[in-house]
Each structure stands twice: as structure tokens, then as C-alpha cells.
Computed example of a mutant assay.
Amino acid sequence: MIVTDARAPDNPITWANDAFVAHTGYGLPELLGRNCRMLQGPGTDAAEIARIGAALAAEEPISAELLNYRKDGTPFWNAMTITPVRDADGVAYFYAAQADMSHTHQLELAMRGTNDELERQVAARTTALSAALEQKTALLHEVDHRVKNNLQVISSLMLLKARRTPEGEARDALQGMAERIGALSTAHRMLYAEGDCTHFDLGEFATELLSDINAGLDADRLRIEAQVEPIAVAAAMAAPLALLIHELTANALHHAFHDGRSGTVSITAQRHADGIRLTVRDDGVGLEAAPPNPAGFGRNLAEMVVRQLRGRIAWAAATPGTRVEIDIPLRGSA
């Protein structure tokens, strides 16, 4: 603690306690009559000095922290509170209580160094993880690309064989399997094009898948309408959903509009609290009037895929036509 004379020129020190003397290294005779600026040095903050000077000139109390220097040149952080002491004529003295905060600054520097090292390690780890993720994404995209190419080759071979097979059940079976494999190929083509290798947009996915089916239709007689919301779905569901949408759409086109009938197949998909509700409806002849198909297994295949997705499927008359409603859970998938 020190006291300075506010009315004497240059506000000199008039009293200092033993702790101040011991800490600064100056003897009491060396301190008395001198201004506190004797403790300043090359690292002392000029802006903070100016702030203290302004407070003293305004005769206001102030708290501040300065880098000061002992008599032997050793620096220390000096936290001080300066208070004006008044008498009947105004401010007579300034009283300053001071504390050495060097240990606090040393801890801050140590913490800053530790934080800098942690940030460096986190940045390095993040870079490594990003690189690993990019490699994984590239690998998954490459896998999808190769699977798509292989499926396209298989589909083309089956179509070629179907064309060379006499009309009948064998030819129809080959044609149907080639179309199913083509749907799976489309699924992998879509995944290959997605930036996120873990999810895909069901709306874009369905549009792409159905456009392939639409391309082979007689536009004057049949058409497909789709209203599929942009739902984020796990990539693992791409192949089952492609097969399911293709199977239900193809079944409706093949069986609901026989004998040259015209009509529409509509596909809708909406997100609800627990997952997706997928609806496929046609305005064809209906379930009861559809011609028998002993060799067909499209309905069984659709039901197996829904079970695989842990969903439920319901078939019903739509008056006219048929309505298939499917609920698929998305727990942890989207």
C-alpha cells in the first residue's frame, strides 16, 4: 500500500508500507518524494497509463493492472485500486492498494499454451478425419459405380437372352428379372451421384427411377404420376425401395390395364411421425378382375421387401382400380 500527495507537484509518494518496500526492492528513502512511474518500464501499457492519469485528473477512483518492474528490473503484474482521499478542501491524497498478479498471468499463459496445443491437436485430428471421410466417400461412390455397371451388364445380358427366347413364361420371366435388375442399377447410379454417401433424397430418387419406367410406356395410353416428398433416407434403404417402387408400379402397369385399356398409376410418398407412407394406386380393372398369373411373384416380392424394411403393406380395392398402402419406419434412418 502507498499514499501519494495529491497537492504536491507530480503527486509524489509520501508513505509506503513494508510489503510494498519488500516487493519492489526499493528502500523507503528511495521511494519517498518520487512518482510511481518509477516502476514503469518498456512493457508497461501506455494506454492503461493514460487511463489511470485521466482518472486521477478527474479525481475518480480506478482499478487497473500494469506490468511494473522492481528495482532489479524483474517484471511483475501489479493490480491496483487507487482511491482519492478528501478533506474539507478537496482531494488531499491518493491511496493505492496493490497486489502482485504475476502468478495469474503465468497461469493464463500456461493455459493459453495448453489451449493452443489442444486446438492444434483438434485441428490435426479433424483434418485426418476429414481425409478419412473423403476416402471412405470416394470408396463408397466407386463401389456404387462398379455395382451399377455390373448390374447394367447383367440386365443387358438377360434382355438379350429374353429377345432370343420364344414367347411364353420363360421370356416374360427373363424380361421381368432384367427390369428388376435395372431398377437396382438405377438405385446405385443415384447413390453414386449423391454428395452424401449415407443418405439420399427419396423425391429425386423416385423421379429418376420412374422416369426410366415412363420412357418405355405408350404415352397415349398409360402414364405415371408421382408426388414424392423430399425425404432424407438412409443409403442402405435405396435398393429395397427401388425394388419395391418398381415392382408395385410394374405390377399395376402389367395387370391393371390389360386388353389395351388406358389409365394412370399414381405414386405418393409422405413423411409422418414414425416414417414414410408410400401409396401406389391405379385406376385399372382392380384386384378381382385382373387376369390370373400363376407364374408371377410380384406381390410376394413386394411383401418380402416390406418385411425386410420392417414395414406393413395393405392391398385394397380403390373403385376403380387398386390401392396399395405401405408404412415404412425410419427410426435412426433419416
Rank of each mutant, 00 (worst) to 15 (best):
Asn68Phe: 03
Ala55Gln: 04
Gly113Leu: 08
Ile328His: 07
Thr14Phe: 11
Val153Ile: 13
Ala289Leu: 05
Ser262Cys: 03
Leu56Ile: 07
Leu278Gln: 01
Gly284Lys: 04
Asn214Ala: 15
Thr14Gln: 15
Glu30Lys: 10
Met190Val: 01
Ala289Tyr: 00
Arg70Tyr: 08
Gln227Ile: 12
His272Lys: 04
His188Ala: 12
Val324Leu: 08
Pro61Lys: 11
Phe205Trp: 06
Thr186Ala: 12
Leu248Met: 04
Leu287Pro: 00
Ala124Cys: 09
Val3Met: 11
Leu133Val: 02
Ile52Tyr: 03
Tyr95Asp: 10
Glu65Trp: 05
Pro240Cys: 09
Pro291Thr: 05
Thr198Met: 10
Pro9Gly: 09
Ala124Ser: 14
Ala317Gly: 14
Ile13Glu: 06
Leu139Met: 15
Glu325Thr: 15
Ser156Asp: 11
Leu209Gly: 01
Gly90Glu: 11
Ile267Pro: 02
Arg146Gln: 15
Lys136Ala: 13
Asp196Glu: 10
Gln40Thr: 04
Gly176Met: 07
Gln106Val: 02
Arg120Val: 04
Ala64Trp: 07
Arg112Trp: 12
Leu222Gln: 07
Arg125Asp: 08
Ile328Val: 05
Asp327Tyr: 14
Pro329Gly: 06
Pro230Tyr: 05
Phe257Asp: 04
Val91Cys: 04
Thr114Trp: 14
Val147Ala: 08
Thr83Trp: 01
Met80Thr: 07
Gly296Tyr: 10
Gly113Met: 13
Ala128Asp: 13
Ala92Thr: 05
His246Ser: 04
Ala316Thr: 14
Ala19Phe: 05
